Simulated scan of single mutants.
Amino acid sequence: MTDSAPPPAPAPQPAPTPAPASGTPEKWNVLAIVGFVIVFFGFSLVSIILGFIALNQIKKTGERGRGLAIWAIVLGFVSIIIGIIAWIVVVTAIAANPNISVQ
Protein backbone atom coordinates (compact mmCIF):
# COMPACT_ATOMS: atom_id res chain seq x y z
CA MET A 1 0.00 0.00 0.00
CA THR A 2 1.46 3.33 -1.03
CA ASP A 3 0.70 6.36 1.01
CA SER A 4 0.94 9.23 -1.46
CA ALA A 5 -0.13 12.78 -0.78
CA PRO A 6 -2.83 14.18 -3.01
CA PRO A 7 -1.58 16.62 -5.64
CA PRO A 8 -1.75 20.31 -4.62
CA ALA A 9 -4.89 22.13 -5.59
CA PRO A 10 -4.47 24.57 -8.45
CA ALA A 11 -4.25 28.22 -7.45
CA PRO A 12 -7.53 30.07 -7.83
CA GLN A 13 -7.75 32.24 -10.91
CA PRO A 14 -8.25 35.96 -10.27
CA ALA A 15 -11.61 37.31 -11.35
CA PRO A 16 -11.37 38.94 -14.76
CA THR A 17 -11.72 42.67 -14.69
CA PRO A 18 -14.49 43.94 -16.91
CA ALA A 19 -13.23 45.77 -19.94
CA PRO A 20 -14.47 49.33 -20.29
CA ALA A 21 -17.31 49.54 -22.72
CA SER A 22 -15.96 50.96 -25.90
CA GLY A 23 -18.15 53.52 -27.57
CA THR A 24 -19.61 54.82 -24.30
CA PRO A 25 -17.38 57.70 -23.19
CA GLU A 26 -17.60 59.06 -19.70
CA LYS A 27 -20.31 61.64 -19.22
CA TRP A 28 -19.36 65.31 -18.84
CA ASN A 29 -21.08 67.58 -16.35
CA VAL A 30 -23.08 70.11 -18.35
CA LEU A 31 -23.00 72.81 -15.67
CA ALA A 32 -19.20 72.71 -15.63
CA ILE A 33 -19.11 73.27 -19.38
CA VAL A 34 -21.71 76.04 -19.30
CA GLY A 35 -20.00 77.74 -16.34
CA PHE A 36 -16.66 77.69 -18.13
CA VAL A 37 -18.06 79.04 -21.40
CA ILE A 38 -20.29 81.71 -19.87
CA VAL A 39 -17.41 83.39 -18.02
CA PHE A 40 -16.11 84.61 -21.39
CA PHE A 41 -19.38 86.44 -22.05
CA GLY A 42 -19.05 88.59 -18.93
CA PHE A 43 -21.31 86.66 -16.57
CA SER A 44 -18.74 86.11 -13.85
CA LEU A 45 -21.10 85.68 -10.91
CA VAL A 46 -23.21 83.15 -12.80
CA SER A 47 -20.05 81.30 -13.77
CA ILE A 48 -18.92 81.09 -10.15
CA ILE A 49 -22.29 79.78 -9.01
CA LEU A 50 -22.47 77.20 -11.80
CA GLY A 51 -18.89 76.13 -11.06
CA PHE A 52 -19.65 75.43 -7.40
CA ILE A 53 -22.86 73.57 -8.24
CA ALA A 54 -20.98 71.53 -10.87
CA LEU A 55 -18.24 70.60 -8.37
CA ASN A 56 -20.88 69.38 -5.94
CA GLN A 57 -22.58 67.29 -8.64
CA ILE A 58 -19.27 65.88 -9.89
CA LYS A 59 -18.37 64.79 -6.37
CA LYS A 60 -21.66 62.87 -6.12
CA THR A 61 -21.89 61.42 -9.65
CA GLY A 62 -18.25 60.99 -10.67
CA GLU A 63 -18.78 62.76 -13.98
CA ARG A 64 -15.97 64.44 -15.87
CA GLY A 65 -15.48 68.21 -15.86
CA ARG A 66 -13.91 68.94 -12.48
CA GLY A 67 -11.17 71.01 -14.14
CA LEU A 68 -13.69 73.03 -16.13
CA ALA A 69 -15.69 73.75 -12.98
CA ILE A 70 -12.58 74.89 -11.12
CA TRP A 71 -11.52 77.10 -14.04
CA ALA A 72 -15.02 78.61 -14.19
CA ILE A 73 -14.74 79.55 -10.52
CA VAL A 74 -11.18 80.88 -10.80
CA LEU A 75 -11.82 82.90 -13.97
CA GLY A 76 -15.05 84.24 -12.51
CA PHE A 77 -13.29 85.54 -9.40
CA VAL A 78 -10.37 86.92 -11.43
CA SER A 79 -12.79 88.71 -13.73
CA ILE A 80 -14.60 90.29 -10.79
CA ILE A 81 -11.30 91.39 -9.19
CA ILE A 82 -10.09 92.92 -12.46
CA GLY A 83 -13.42 94.75 -12.82
CA ILE A 84 -13.15 96.17 -9.29
CA ILE A 85 -9.58 97.32 -9.92
CA ALA A 86 -10.61 98.95 -13.20
CA TRP A 87 -13.44 100.83 -11.48
CA ILE A 88 -11.07 102.02 -8.75
CA VAL A 89 -8.60 103.28 -11.36
CA VAL A 90 -11.32 105.10 -13.31
CA VAL A 91 -12.86 106.70 -10.22
CA THR A 92 -9.51 107.84 -8.84
CA ALA A 93 -8.50 109.24 -12.25
CA ILE A 94 -11.72 111.23 -12.44
CA ALA A 95 -11.38 112.41 -8.84
CA ALA A 96 -7.74 113.42 -9.32
CA ASN A 97 -8.48 115.52 -12.40
CA PRO A 98 -11.54 117.73 -11.94
CA ASN A 99 -11.18 119.12 -15.47
CA ILE A 100 -12.46 115.84 -16.95
CA SER A 101 -16.16 116.13 -17.59
CA VAL A 102 -18.23 112.99 -17.77
CA GLN A 103 -21.12 113.49 -20.16
Rank of each mutant, 00 (worst) to 15 (best):
V74P: 01
P14T: 02
I73D: 08
A5D: 11
P25E: 13
A21W: 04
Q13T: 01
A72G: 14
L68T: 03
V102Y: 09
S47T: 06
P12D: 10
T92G: 04
Q13N: 08
A11K: 09
A72M: 09
T2P: 14
K60V: 05
F36D: 15
P12E: 08
N56P: 09
F77Q: 05
G83F: 01
L55G: 13
Q13Y: 02
I81Q: 11
P98M: 11
L45T: 13
I70C: 05
L31K: 08
G83L: 03
G67E: 11
K59E: 13
F77G: 08
M1N: 08
R64D: 13
S101D: 05
E26H: 10
N29H: 00
G65L: 12
A21F: 05
I81L: 14
P7T: 07
G42P: 00
A54M: 02
N97Y: 02
Q57W: 05
P20A: 12
M1Q: 09
I38N: 08
I94E: 07
R64A: 14
V46W: 05
S44A: 15
I100C: 06
A54L: 02
V102K: 05
I100D: 01
R66I: 02
K59L: 05
I84M: 15
G83E: 06
A93P: 01
Q13I: 01
A93L: 05
P98A: 14
G83P: 06
I100P: 00
F52A: 11
L45N: 15
P10C: 03
I94K: 04
V102R: 02
P98C: 08
T92V: 14
G35V: 06
W87K: 15
I33K: 15
I85F: 04
V91H: 15
A32L: 01
N99M: 09
N56R: 12
G62L: 06
S44D: 09
A54K: 00
K27T: 13
T2W: 15
A32R: 02
S79F: 00
G35S: 12
V39L: 13
A72V: 07
T61A: 10
V46K: 05
I94V: 04
G83Q: 12
I94N: 07
V78S: 13
A5G: 14
V91E: 14
P18E: 08
V89P: 11
Q103D: 13
S47V: 09
K59F: 06
P8G: 02
G23H: 00
I80D: 05
P12N: 09
I85L: 11
L75E: 06
P20Y: 09
F36L: 15
D3T: 01
V46Q: 15
V39C: 12
L55Q: 14
G83V: 06
F52H: 14
N97V: 00
S44V: 06
A93D: 14
G42V: 08
V46D: 15
A72C: 09
G42R: 02
P10K: 02
I70L: 12
P7Q: 04
P10T: 01
V102W: 05
P16N: 04
A72W: 04
G51D: 02
I70S: 10
I100R: 00
I53F: 01
